[in-house]
Nucleic acid binder design. Structure first.
Length: 414
RNA sequence: GGAGGGGUGCCCGAGAGGCUAAAGGGGACGGACUGUAAAUCCGUUGGCGCACGCCUACGUUGGUUCGAAUCCAACCCCCUCCA
């Protein structure tokens, strides 16, 4: 039985997969402010919804008065975490890592409050301590606490070995460095909890052991479940590709659409994980049957978009979608592209325009889209892929392009 | 260091001189049916203003051939066993 508000709500909302010591953690959470960290790889310059569970649990932690610590893996990204990957990752240059880190850091701003207060979120970069480690001193000081016997038993290692995929010695050391991180964060910030995806279990447990053995301090680990859709697909793909959290990668409108298209069976679960809506209200919405779940999906979409992009962008996205799908009108807030007026006056072949608008990845793909009957201009099906689109097609100041029933773009003359 | 096996499109995986832009599956996209859902069925799935045609692509670089993903050589990488 858990009594701390945070752990209780985290459990009810579906954030908890495993915990190293539920009672101990619960007691610590009740005793005072707990600092908890999650590490983020700097392998891309933005985060997508695959990391949203981690971000949301930090947010929940902060809502309950505890302190989130975002650890940027500036150092560990130079190694590459083998967990959950069946192939060695391409090594990144230090410049790429630095650039990625800056991009990722920005993703947290809408979700967490950073500052100097007791429950304000803070960031750290493990490159600050990992890069200056000396090999021999590290082996002597930390290496003695790890047995190869045990390391070989970890899933991240075992999976590679079983699949006969290579695991380099570089990657093999990842868990040692992550363990070092936990101990270091405990020393520097009093961090007592590491949270991570379920594939991080082994790495987290190692860190707990190391901290106990060398510092005689008790720290805790908590993992979140892997989030898949009800039909079993990995979550986080949209027609445009990955569902990024930043608007320069994916517009708030498309972000809203991603949530709007949630499968029926996932609505309740996703609302619990990805919105701040009260559990009682979610329970009510979840009970809606048949086509009524669409109301719940709209709320899910608007709430999730509000968290990532703000109230205004969320309301705009909801209204844009309402006009497009319920009134059949093209709101001028639909994502769009500008095309030089002169080109439009000269006439642009339809297939070309769909590619320019980003509704097709290449001219050829656009041609196929048109041949397949999935392309519309101003809601009129396109029959001729080479048909010249001109200023005469402007409705108001824009041309509405549609790929399929769901993807719409506006083309404006500039 | 030695012996054997292997590197194919987004992924898995077949192909073993021309019929191969490369079977099959998955994924993705489009169509039908719906509720902007799922399931199902159908279609599409390298690039190019794409009827013809040209270009790029079966680890890399060369070679043999009228013709190579397929044969040869060297190299790189991976796996297994031995040392």
């Amino acid at each position: 039985m858990v009594n701390s508000e945070f752990l209780q709500e985290a459990t009810e909302r579906g954030f908890v997969f495993q915990c190293t010591d539920t009672e101990g953690l619960d007691a610590a959470l009740r005793a005072g402010t707990v600092t908890a960290y999650i590490g983020f790889d700097c392998t891309a310059d933005s985060l997508h919804v695959g990391s949203l569970v981690q971000i949301m649990i930090l947010r929940l932690l902060q809502r309950h008065g505890h302190r989130p610590l975002v650890l940027m893996g500036g150092g560990t990204t130079r190694i590459g975490d083998p967990s959950g990957k069946d192939e060695t990752r391409q090594l990144l240059t230090d410049e790429q890592i630095a650039a990625n880190m800056a991009g990722i850091r920005r993703c947290f701003d809408p979700f967490l409050r950073f500052g100097d207060g007791p429950a304000d979120a803070i960031t750290a970069n493990n490159d600050d301590w990992l890069s200056s480690l000396g090999y021999i001193p590290l082996l002597r000081e930390v290496g003695t606490h790890f047995t190869v016997n045990r390391m070989l038993g970890f899933d991240s290692v075992r999976i590679r070995l079983d699949r006969e995929q290579p695991l380099t010695f570089l990657e093999f050391n990842y868990m040692i460095l992550q363990s070092y991180d936990f101990r270091e964060l405990n020393r520097r910030y009093g961090c007592a909890l590491q949270i991570g995806g379920s594939d991080q279990w082994g790495n987290i447990v190692c860190g707990i052991d190391l901290t106990r053995r060398t510092d005689n301090r008790t720290v805790f680990g908590l993992t979140t479940p892997l989030i898949a859709t009800a039909s079993g697909a990995k979550m986080g793909k949209s027609a445009q590709g990955a569902v990024w959290l930043t608007r320069d990668r994916l517009s708030p409108y498309d972000y809203w659409q991603f949530w709007r298209n949630t499968e029926d069976a996932d609505v309740g679960r996703f609302m619990r994980l990805f919105t701040d809506l009260p559990l009682a209200e979610i329970a009510r919405l979840e009970a809606l049957g048949g086509a009524e779940v669409n109301e719940a999906k709209k709320l899910l979409a608007t709430e999730a978009t509000r968290l990532a992009h703000g109230v205004e962008a969320a309301a705009d996205a909801a209204e844009t979608a309402r006009l497009a799908f319920e009134e059949g009108e093209a709101a001028d807030t639909l994502p769009g592209v500008d095309v030089p007026r002169a080109e439009l006056e000269a006439g642009i072949p339809a297939f070309r325009l769909f590619a320019i608008a980003g509704l097709a990845g290449s001219n050829g793909e656009a041609r196929r889209l048109i041949r397949g009957g999935g392309a519309r201009i101003n809601d009129m099906p396109v029959k001729d892929e080479g048909h010249a689109v001109t200023v005469a097609d402007l409705h108001g100041d824009a041309i509405k392009l549609s790929a399929g029933r769901k993807q719409h773009r506006l083309v404006r003359a500039a």
